[in-house]
Every structure is written in C-alpha cells, then in structure tokens.
Design a protein around this nucleic acid. Structure first.
Length: 644
RNA sequence: GCCAAUGUGGCUCAGGGGUAGAGCAAUUCACUCGUAAUGAAUAGGCCGUGGGUUCGAUUCCCACCAUUGGCUCCA
C-alpha cells in the first residue's frame, strides 16, 4: 500500500503492490487537481483527484510527460532569471516547455553569442545551487498589470491585457525573480539538475512576421546528468541519419550553386529509388481505378485567376512575363488541380461517369521563400503523386475511404505507417482573408469530413487554420529524425472549386449538379518521401527499393569470368547488380559495399568456382553458401513481398 | 522574407595580413589476396562570388550567393 500524503493530511490511496511514478498538482478556482501516475500491478495507470485549496504534491520522478514538462518549464524560468541578472535591460516575452526542451524569448540589444550563452549557463547553475523556493501567488487583473508595468515588462503587460476577464492571474516567484505564469513548476530551483542551452534563433513576437523579431534561446533540461548525456547522444545519432547529410554522402542527391536554391539534383541512386516508387504507385493506382493524365507544366494566368490561386499565392509562383506589358502571362504550375479539372470539362458528364479518378505524376513549382528550403523536404521543384477524384455526394464517404486506404497501403509498404499521425485541418473562421466560400459551405464540408473520419475511426488532432483556402484536409504528418513534423500526405474535400470552374454532372433527374472533388496524394512528394526513407532506414533501403541490390566481387581476377556470368544471370532476372573487380583486397571492397549499404554482397573465390555456388553476405555481416538459383529465389521472394 | 552561424582540393576538417596543410577519395606502380581499410609514389586549391581597406587579403570590412538551425509561410 502506498499513500501519497498531502500537506493537510489527506491521502491518495493506491492499490496494493502499486508504486507512484509521478504526481503533479494544478490549482485553479480554489481547487487543486492532482495528476498521479502510478504503477499498479506492473501496469502504468494514471489517475486524477480533486483536492482542497492549499494542498501540494511533490513531483517524485521525471517519467511522465507532465512531470518532464514541469522540469523543463522551471528551467526556462531559471534561464529568464539568469538573463535578467546579467542583462537587466532585457524585456521578457514568453518561455514555454516544448517537446525535448524549452525556450524563452527575449527582447534585448545583447547578441546571444556562444560566449554569452556560456555566461548565462554559469549564472543558471548558480540559481540552481541557491535552491530558491518557487512560490505561486495571484493578483487581480489591475494589480497584475500595474505589477508588470512597474517591472517594465511591456510584453507581459500585453499578455495580461489579452487574458480573458475574470481569469485568475498567477505569478511564480523565485528569489528576486517573478514571472507571469500559469504553472506548473517545481517547488524549488534546486531540483533542476542537468540542463543545456542548445541554440539561439530569431522568433517573431506572437509568431507574427509584422511584429518585432525577438531572440529565442532553446535549451533542454533533465533531472539527472545521465538523461542529458543520453539525449545529446541521441541527437548526435540523429544527425548521422539526417537525409540532408546521409543523402549527400551516399550520393542520392546533390545541389549546385549555379542551378539555385531548392533545386536538388537527383543523382542516379536517388533517381532510381524515385523511379521505383513512381512505377509502383502508377501501377497500384491503375489497379484501383485511377486514370493517368499528363497535363502541362504551365498555364496562362487566367487559369490561376479562376481557381483563386492567383489571389492567394501569386507571390509563391514562378510567373513569366509582365501583366502590364505582355498580352499573355504564363506561370509554372504550383498545383495540378485546375489542369485536371480541364480534363473533366472535356465533355458533359453523367452521374453514371462518377466517380471519375484522375491521377498524375505531377511536377510542381513553388517559389518558396529563401529561408524555407531544406534538403529534399522543402524545395522549389518537386514531383507529387497527385490525384483528383470527382464524385457524387452519396459516393463521397466510400471514395474518401478508398483514398485513405490507398495512402495507408503506400505507407505500410514503405514501412512508414507506424511513424505517422493524423491531423484534421480546418479553417479559421476569424481569418476570412485566407479562405473562400461561406460559413455554411465550410460547416458543411467540415461536418461531412468529420463524419467520415469519425466513422472510419481515425485518431486525429484538429488543426485550426491549417485548411487549404478551398476546403478542409486530412493531413498525414510525419516527424523527421530531429522530431520536426511535416505533412507527408494530404487528402482534401473540396466543394468550392467545382462551382468556380463550372464542373457539373447531369443527375438522374436531369438536373446539373457540382461534384465533390477529393484532392489527394497517395505517397506524397517523391523527394520528401525519399528524404524520410533515407532517415527511416539510415540509407539501408529494403531490397525492392535499393538502387543497387547486389554487388558481386571476385577475390582475385581469375574468378572474373565466373562473376561476369553470375552478373549477367542476375541482370537477366531484372536485379540491379554491379561487379566490383577492382584490384583491391576483398576486405577493402566489402567495407566499401557495406558503407554504401548494399543489401547483398556476393564473394566468389576458388571454393565457389569449384562448387558452382555463390557466397552471399548480407548487410548484417552474415554470410551463407548457396547455389545461384537459391540466391535468385531468395531475392525474388524478398522483392515481391517488399520485405523490410 | 526575418534572426543567427557557417563557406579552405571530390569528402571530413586544421590554419591564419606575407600568395596554403592533414586524413580519406582519385591516378600510377608493386602486391593475386577469403568477408569493414596492403604499401609506395603522383596529381589536385583564384581559401563561395564581387567590391573595399592595405605595400600586400584566403585571413579585416561591406554586399551578394549558397549551406545549416530557428521564425513566418507551406495551395
């Protein structure tokens, strides 16, 4: 039996054999809610309890997400305190805990260079040593504003002014330092054990680019040194998998200053993987009733004006010509939608024609801002497995489901399914600039989509203001090696563009109706997907995607003919094979093939030429003797099942 | 676009106001070799680009280009 004893003597009682992992308390409206994580009979359980005002619980360990955030958040306050001690003129903005760490935004003339960061870290260590008690107190709104005005913290004053009327305004005080904060915090700065300031970055106040740019210090914090070391080691490991580094080292892609930013060159290996994915996608989609189109890479501005893209994204397009002086202005396409709509508009459509599924391996051009480009993840020219599906309202759910199933099938095949999360991207009714259509239309589209998602049992998070300008989206999100999230796949429901483009079908009763359009991708942008695969597999692609599947090497040159025969045999079966008969020791050549992450190496010496067998070495370093036929059967099986 | 860091042979990096250095890779030669590096020799650089300061710049300053990490953006 374990009891958590509260200050007033009341107890949280847990079952026999249980162990408290973590506990935290949050106080609002005079009531405290305690969250306790405990191990009950070997299972981790969480429970919450409502306590009386004045109760406290100590955080016991760091294992729960909430406990970890409290550590990080307290460290953020210590950072702010240290900065204020060293540079009292600095104005404080905000300093939350984030995944893996925390940050604090400052407005100051001091430039946070590496030297300055080290000085700040020293001061933080002092604050930890001082073991300052952390105390919470509240003030009425007027007094809270006055309090922060006296401290000459204009950002804090603004934050308080923006809090809803009647909200309790809480502060946390540690030593001479007090910060506006909703909590929670450790009860003393002395509990922070191990932290590191990791980087400095610029960040706009309130995330608005029209506001002043502040300096943001990022850091991370753990209750003991071992966890910090482990975290830093993990980051080092992640760096090695970074597609932008590994992809260049393994010669999947490169860039050229002469060609320009965001315009990667896919080298033979990268191009091969993309080709393999592309063929797989086109074949699979054909099986599922999609028809391939090939539409132009550019169009007159008229097309984009009609679709609304000209109004919303002109700055992000590569426009050729000048509207003032030229009769016709063209722009490279930043999306495929209106092009495929023109295919739909080729003739009159009946309700019997629907659903109509158009797919395309579509190259797009977007003039991303110079600071946005990143490896193969954000580029100016990319190729996407695009598709638009026109259907009747009664078909929408079934078709949406099939699009989602297709995407999931692709993710599963690539081995990325377990790494993704779902986001239901909705519009922001307060930002009418960004969206076309009426509130009723949005309510209807989102309502329909929500019904579909709930019906399909998709576990999603809602993203307000993340919708496309013409409709809501289901985004399939994936994190890169550093934990940064990007959209890999998106499926959108659109009932507005059909109307704009005059797309109709004749229904049973003879009336003309606008179809629903599903915009979707099945595997995403090939460049981005390649990047994530490089990181997922650390360059060691599954056999069906490996640019080079087998490398054959004779031990000495007298086995050359035997090797050439084997290479031809494998090539005839469609395998991607290379011969390495360089005058180097076998160990040297194996080392190179290993570092290039070639799935199979075949070593041929006298033993093999005599037995007529092959010696097959895999990436794990295990080697095995077998006949050429057995080897081919093994490869065939592995490719066909797309084994990972 | 904004804040910051970086840019030295194909790659990874050292150096630093007096026209450059290592390891790997490359080339040549020798070695014919059994599962992650055989040895020797040779060649390779307008120190990202353009301007300025200076007797002299790769080094200092400015601008631009590119890369990296953030911010904003992401149809």
């Amino acid at each position: 039996m374990i009891n958590v004893v509260l200050k007033d003597g009341s107890k949280l009682e847990l079952e026999d054999g249980s162990r408290v992992i973590d506990a935290a308390v949050k106080i609002s409206e005079g009531l405290a809610r305690a969250s306790v994580a405990a191990e009950v009979n070997g299972e981790t359980a969480e429970l919450t309890a409502t306590l009386s005002d004045g109760d406290t619980l100590n955080i016991l360990t760091f294992t729960s997400e909430e406990g970890a955030r409290i550590f990080r958040h307290t460290t953020a306050h210590i950072l702010a305190q240290a900065v204020k001690r060293l540079y009292p003129q600095t104005k404080l903005a905000i300093g939350p805990a984030i995944d893996d760490g925390f940050y604090y935004d400052f407005d100051t003339d001091v430039s946070f260079t590496q030297d300055v960061l080290e000085k700040i870290e020293e001061e933080m260590k002092k604050i930890v040593k001082e073991k300052l008690p952390v105390e919470r107190f509240t003030l009425p709104r007027d007094e809270a504003i006055k309090f922060m005005q006296e401290k000459e913290e204009p950002y804090k004053v603004q934050l308080i002014e923006e809090l809803p009327e009647g909200e309790e305004i809480s502060f946390y005080r540690q030593g001479e330092f007090t910060d506006l904060c909703a909590g929670l915090h450790l009860d003393t700065t002395g509990k922070v054990k191990s932290f590191k300031l990791t980087q400095v970055a610029g960040a706009y106040w309130k995330g608005n680019e029209k506001n002043k740019m502040l300096q943001r210090i990022y850091g991370t914090s753990f209750p003991d040194k071992k966890m910090l070391t482990e975290y830093l080691e993990r980051m080092e490991e992640a760096k090695k998998r970074d597609h932008n580094k590994l992809g260049r080292e393994l010669e999947y892609f490169t860039t050229s200053d002469l060609i320009g930013q965001g315009l990667p060159i896919l080298l033979p290996k990268g191009a091969k993987v993309i080709q393999l994915m592309q063929r797989f996608v086109e074949d699979e989609e054909a099986k599922r009733g999609w028809q391939l189109t090939k539409t132009p890479y550019m169009a007159k501005s008229d097309l984009y004006k009609l679709s609304g893209h000209w109004d919303h994204y002109k700055d992000g397009m590569f426009v050729m010509g000048d509207e003032e002086t030229d009769k016709e202005v063209f722009a490279l396409r930043p999306m495929t939608c209106p092009f495929q709509y023109q295919a739909y508009l080729n003739r009159g459509r009946s309700y019997r024609d629907l659903p109509l599924r158009y797919d395309e391996t579509s190259t797009l051009f977007r003039n991303e801002a110079s600071g946005e480009m990143h490896g193969l993840i954000r580029v100016r020219q990319f190729t996407i497995s695009e598709g638009h599906l026109m259907c009747r309202p009664d078909q929408l759910e079934e078709e949406f489901k099939s699009c989602l199933e297709l995407a999931i099938y692709m993710l599963k095949t690539l081995g990325l399914l377990e790494d993704v999360s779902y986001r239901f991207s909705q519009w922001d009714p307060s930002d009418r600039e960004k969206y076309i259509g009426t509130e009723e239309q949005w309510d209807e589209a989102q309502g329909t989509m929500q019904k579909i998602l709930d019906h399909l049992g998709i576990d999603y998070k809602i993203g307000i203001g993340e919708a496309a300008f013409y409709g809501p989206k289901l985004d399939i999100q994936i994190k890169n090696v550093f934990g940064k999230e990007d959209t890999l796949i998106t499926i959108q429901v659109d009932q507005m563009l059909a109307e704009k483009f005059g797309m109709v079908y004749t229904d049973k009763d003879g009336t003309k109706k606008n179809p629903y359009i599903i915009h979707r991708t099945s595997i995403g942008c090939y460049e981005r997907t390649l990047a994530l695969l490089i990181e997922k597999y650390a360059g060691a692609f599954p056999l069906w995607l490996a640019p080079e599947q087998v490398r054959v090497m004779p031990i000495i040159d007298k086995q050359g003919d035997y090797c050439a025969d084997l290479v031809n045999k494998l090539k005839a079966k469609g395998f991607r094979v290379e011969l390495d008969d360089r005058n180097e020791k076998i160990g040297y050549r194996i080392r190179e093939a290993q570092m290039e992450k070639i799935p199979y190496m075949v070593v041929i010496g006298d033993k093999e030429t005599e037995s007529g067998h092959v010696n097959v070495r895999n990436r794990k370093g295990e080697s095995q003797d077998m006949s050429a036929e057995e080897f081919i059967a093994m490869l065939t099986e592995e490719v066909e099942t797309k084994k990972r």
